[in-house]
Amino acid sequence: MKTLKEMLAEARQVVPEEGPQQVQRRLAAGEPVVVIDVRDPDEYRDGHLEAATNISRGFLEFRVGTAVTDPSTPIVLYCQTGLRSVLAAKALKELGYATVINLQGGYQKWVQSGLPVVREVPMTADQIQRYSRHFLLPQVGDRGQKKLLRSKVLLIGAGGLGSPIALYLAAAGVGTLGLMDGDVVDLTNLQRQVLHTTADIGKPKVESGARMLKALNPDVNVIPLPMRITADNVMDVIRDYDLIVDGSDNFETRYLVNDACFLAGKTNVHGSIFQFEGMATVFAPNAGPCYRCLYPTPPPPGLVPS
């Protein structure tokens, strides 16, 4: 009979191990790795890697097929300290999964390395009903919804573009929405800026916007920022957000948002409209072009009506 020590030593011979930093680099680079937390559900709930799916050790061989559809996809396994998972990894190798990596030191070492973890916040009965249609979409599901609820999006402009975007994102359950606009609601806005109502005329757009969004979905934490975006405040404002949405109505702001997002490494979801035409694109720093690649200079002032 083998001792536990021998079994672990045997598993380590066939299972490569990677430290938390190495695994984090893979995830940050967007590599198509599947991360599986093989601990028990209560351990997973107390905190886990954001990318991880929970399949307890006891069910691993039975359920791994649902998490990993292609056996050539690299898999990272972890448990609390890296022992249970190394044995689990050996079992997956024997099932024919080509690359199975054990997270060295497990969850414990990941936390000690100061890397980010998420706590499983159980959804309320209302939330389960509210987002039930999202749960039916395999690309969203329960995990995707929780990710949305943890996400922070900054909307620059609460006007023609910002209004519908804010409403859709609040409805979808994006947890934190920063709403930035220095204007007040004008009667001429109301034919298209659906975030505001007739009773809001004269009030700051972020105030009426925040009220409307909270009424639509009380889950959403709306942060009203009643100011124009400037070179002095932009870096401080965008720092806290995962994603920036540019729904501004002038070129000066667009170049500023573009430059700031590129310098801060933030993705900028860009849109603009004029009369019956509109356009949208995503500026992802270093992954694609920026607004300046598209429009090196703004059109001369006389050419476009404001």
């Binding site: 990710k147 999006v153 994102l169 949208a280």
Partner: peptide, 10 residues
């Protein structure tokens, strides 16, 4: 734009 945001977040 809203759809793009949700896709990027997920």
């Amino acid at each position: 734009q809203a759809t793009e945001v949700v896709k990027l977040l997920l």
